[in-house]
């Protein structure tokens, strides 16, 4: 290397730029992204029945991670562990550790209400509140005290709806009921509601399974845009969707994490035979 200029002047020492290789040769990101969610040996029990067996995986920030697997394999259960939605089920019990930014969210000091402000969630069926579009989006920021004046609220609502790609469609009818929108619009409204509280992680539980292909395409486009700022985890039954939107894929089967890795690798060169069988449609 040629560090020195002629003339004996010490050139300013440029700090070595950390080589963050975010994408592989196909343009897919690699595991070198910072880890946002780190789980170790997560077991989930519903009463006496064990639903998840020792799931350990790292989920990178600023990327989309897809959970795939046949119905009842525990992928939704695992997703719901990440914002402690399983707490609302009386008989559910979670063991192991799930760390977000290095802090175990199941620690005693962690308040699930605050956690859910950091980890937003979008459900399978669009579930806007039976209120106006405006109130749907403004609700989260209001209860968390992120906004105090009407102007601030307006700004957050507009920003969130814009980022969810819904602003153009609803700008003139913010007072209309959120439940009056079409399915795809409702789902984007719900996403706007989730990002309005400025979460770090967004969990999506089969967000497109109730939508038609056009609405699905819009949501996928949106997910791809949101990836820049959020750690997105999506559960999907559509392998094509997982391949389209995700950078990392995890395959679950019978409550166990069979394998996880870059999406490209899972779909082209799975290491496990069960993954191979599932993605080729031999079971599932």
């Amino acid at each position: 290397m040629n560090d020195r200029e002629p003339g004996g002047h010490a050139a300013p020492l440029t700090p070595p730029t950390p080589v963050v290789q975010t994408h592989d040769m196909h343009g897919h990101p690699l595991a070198s992204l910072p880890v946002k969610v780190c789980t170790r040996d997560v077991d989930v029990f519903y009463g006496d029945k064990q639903a998840l067996f020792g799931v350990s995986m790292d989920i990178p920030d600023c990327s989309v991670t897809a959970f795939i697997g046949p119905s009842g394999c525990g992928k939704s259960t695992f997703l719901r562990c990440i914002n402690r939605m399983n707490d609302t089920i009386d008989i559910a019990r979670v063991a192991g550790s799930i760390e977000i930014d290095g802090a175990n969210i199941y620690d005693r000091g962690i308040d699930p209400v605050l956690l859910r402000a950091r980890v937003g969630m979008v459900f399978q069926k669009p579930n806007p509140f039976p209120k106006s579009i405006y109130d749907n989006v403004a609700y989260g920021p209001k209860i968390h005290g992120l906004v105090s004046t009407k102007d601030e609220t307006d700004a957050v609502v507009e920003d969130s709806l814009k980022r969810a790609g819904l602003w153009a469609e609803v700008a003139d009818r913010l007072d209309a009921p959120g439940t009056g929108l079409s399915g795809g619009q409702q789902q984007r409204l719900v996403i706007a509601r989730a990002i309005a509280v400025k979460p770090e992680v967004i969990l999506m539980d089969e967000p497109c399974s109730a939508l038609d292909p056009i609405a699905t395409a819009k949501i996928e486009e949106l997910i791809d845009e949101l990836r820049e700022n959020f750690c997105i985890i999506i559960v999907t039954h559509s392998m094509a969707q997982a391949a389209r939107v995700s950078q990392k894929t995890a395959f679950f089967h019978l409550g166990k994490l069979v394998e996880s890795g870059p999406t490209e690798e899972i779909f082209t060169n799975p290491r496990d035979e069960r993954t191979q069988d599932y993605i080729t449609g031999r079971f599932g």
């Binding site: 914002n83 209400v113 859910r116 459900f123 509140f129 989260g140 509280v197």
Partner: peptide, 23 residues
């Protein structure tokens, strides 16, 4: 009341009381 409403409120970080009384 459909559980989705309860979940929706909890998922944006409403407390249980807020979810129940607000939604």
């Amino acid at each position: 009341v459909p559980p989705s409403i309860r979940e929706a409120a909890l998922a944006v970080g409403a407390s249980r009381t807020q979810a129940v009384f607000g939604h």
